[in-house]
Amino acid sequence: MASADIQNANPTILSVSQLPTRLEGRISANKGAHCEYDNVVFRDRDWLKDLMKEHAGDDSAGEPLDEQEVYDLISVISDPEHPHTLGELNVVRLPDIHVTPPPRNNPKGLGNVQVELTPTINHCSLATVIGLAVRVRLEQTLPPNYRIDVRMKDGSHAQDDQVNKQLGDKERVAAALENDSLKGVLDNMMKPCFA
């Protein structure tokens, strides 16, 4: 997109360290020169990892789909006009993702994933495209027993009702995906997901 068309030329960008991640990943990044022989000294006795898992409160009975996992799936989608991801632009936020898993006694029952997006400006005309990309990404990565609901966060967009209506209409979504130029835009946005 030409720079003249950019609607928000100076969005706030979050650094990688500010993005939410799982606790284990954060701790394992701590490797200085003093830890050089850790792999020799500890060999396969990875106490620290076990300790972190336990502390992070991992459900040892399983690793159910959670908000962080959904965030990891969609936060890496690239913005259509900035060379940043939706996570870095804070369009996708962890607290605005809600996952309702299927009932424990029926793992194939219906689950629900709701994602609320926050455009960088409230008159962003690309909000629908971003919402569509998030929706497509989730449809391609979640099991079929999950209902997907992508919407603009209340008050974050001047025309959030209309955008939500478009994103919620399955037929309009399907029709949009038939449009080659729009599909090209979506493919570009999805590229970082497969890097």
């Binding site: 399983g62 996992e69 391609q140 990565t141 079929p144």
Partner: peptide, 24 residues
């Protein structure tokens, strides 16, 4: 693969997503 995207193991889910994308 769509079904496996709901596998109880997070790692398996991740691999299933990649396979699904490649077959798509």
């Amino acid at each position: 693969m769509a079904e496996t995207c709901g596998h109880p193991s997070r790692q398996i889910r991740g691999v299933a997503r990649e396979v699904r994308a490649r077959w798509l």
